[in-house]
């Protein structure tokens, strides 16, 4: 069963999984090569800035992969009102887990290419003194972030329209409250508070706001 479910998700997502994998492989190269003009130590700070700037691409890539794999697992079932899936002789939770597991397998190529890209880019670059490569750490952070993004979007996409509506309503309430507070001249910053709540430990998205540095001090 897993094989055919995996095949179905692969079929639906292979069109963009390959480009994403290429991007994941290429980012480390650009991180270290673009704007890096030598080994003089006063260039090292520039290199770190460069790496930090390119590093912002990783959480974005992780979120994009999570969104694509998470939603593509469900989009075809949604189109058919889930009828096909629901008349298969398998419990709903088991079917969901099959789709979830298949998605996890599909995340692997992106994770591996990011790791290989990071490893290759640092392997072929002579880093200035004082700067070290962290390909494993970066790949580990990317893996966790991708996993989380995937899991989150998968859960939302697997829900009913009512569940998706509830999520959107909560987001809408936060935004509207912020707008009203702004109109009323209040210092209340709901958006920032909400952002902090989800990105600062033990917030679920903490791993996204960490340091995405392939090379660092």
């Amino acid at each position: 069963m897993l094989r055919i479910i995996l095949y179905s998700q692969w079929k639906w997502s292979r069109g963009w999984l390959l480009p994403v994998a290429v991007v994941g492989f290429a980012i480390p190269y650009f991180m270290l090569r673009v704007g890096y003009s030598g080994e003089r130590y006063w260039d090292a700070a520039g290199l770190l800035e460069q790496v930090a700037a390119w590093g912002r691409g990783y959480p974005a890539l992780a979120a994009a992969i999570g969104l694509l794999v998470g939603t593509s697992a469900w989009i075809h079932d949604h189109r058919g009102d889930h009828v096909y899936a629901l008349v298969l002789p398998t419990p709903r939770w088991y079917y969901v887990l099959l789709r979830y597991t298949a998605g996890l397998v599909l995340l692997a190529p992106a994770m591996i290419t990011v790791f290989l890209g990071a490893l290759t880019a640092t392997w072929f670059t002579t880093l200035p003194a004082g700067i070290y490569a962290y390909p494993i750490q970066l790949a580990a952070r990317f893996m966790l972030a991708t996993l989380l993004a995937y899991s989150l979007f998968f859960a939302i996409a697997s829900g009913t329209q009512r569940a998706a509506g509830a999520v959107l309503t909560i987001v809408g309430i936060v935004v509207v409250t912020q707008l009203l507070a702004g109109i009323a001249g209040s210092d209340l910053n709901v958006l920032e508070a909400a952002f902090d709540r989800i990105t600062i430990w033990p917030g679920p998205l903490e791993v996204f706001v960490g340091r995405w540095m392939l090379v660092d001090l």
Partner: peptide, 12 residues
């Protein structure tokens, strides 16, 4: 089960 409207994945 044969539903009233086709329920199969169109890309298959």
């Amino acid at each position: 089960y044969v539903p009233e409207r086709p329920h199969l994945y169109p890309s298959f």
